[in-house]
């Protein structure tokens, strides 16, 4: 199930591929985790208020705020995904990131897929799709080997021979990563 309610099977289009990071915590799970911490904080807060050690309560709520922040970030990123939809010789790329949605469209015939290899100063390869002077990075959160595999699949969907390509349908669930300033890969 897509985090925004659609499923791959529902799609009334010719071809669709979805890139979705693996997430095991559901919205209900997140709420349950936060509520359990909040309940414990309130109970302990009353206990320490009653005994006169009121400054303990400040630390308890400070911690609860930290947990809330992390869970909110987790919820915001839970919907992150990329959809690649091919329809009537057009390739649509819909990116969901941090609660925002952006859509980009390319002509399959003219579009090109390029993989810029990792180099100095940037340790991760960059997967680009573009045409007519525009380029868009896709699969940024994929790890290196997955980018190569995706580049191969997308390469068949563009250019003069794109009509003969095998159908592109399904989803890639991956352990998402992004590169930090020191070249380490970190989960998003």
């Amino acid at each position: 199930m897509h985090p925004h309610g659609r499923t791959v099977a529902d799609a009334p289009v010719k071809q669709r591929l979805e890139l979705r990071p693996n997430r095991s915590l559901t919205g209900r799970g997140r709420t349950a985790v936060f509520l359990s911490f909040a309940a414990a904080t309130v109970v302990l807060g009353f206990l320490f208020l009653a005994t006169g050690a009121w400054p303990v309560v400040l630390f308890l709520f400070l911690e609860l705020a930290g947990i809330g922040y992390v869970l909110t970030r987790t919820a915001r990123d839970a919907g992150d995904c990329e959809e690649i939809v091919v329809e009537d010789d057009r390739m649509k790329i819909i990116q969901h990131a941090a609660g925002r949605v952006s859509q980009h469209e390319f002509q399959c015939y003219w579009a090109k897929v390029a993989l810029e290899p990792a180099g100095r100063g940037r340790r991760s390869a960059k997967l680009l799709i573009g045409s007519h002077g525009r380029a868009l990075e896709i699969g940024r959160a994929l790890q290196e080997s997955e980018k190569y595999r995706l580049a191969q699949r997308l390469g068949l969907m563009v250019g003069p021979a794109h009509r003969d390509a095998p159908p592109l349908r399904g989803e890639i669930i991956f352990n998402s990563c992004e590169e930090d300033t020191h070249g380490n890969f970190a989960p998003r």
Binding site: S124, E144, H182, N184, F185
Partner: peptide, 22 residues
Amino acid sequence: MATSHHAEHPAGLSRWLFTTNH
């Protein structure tokens, strides 16, 4: 394919000071 890249990592003191690798 190209997975050898994953064996690369920063070296020296900065590896340990700034690492985010578990």
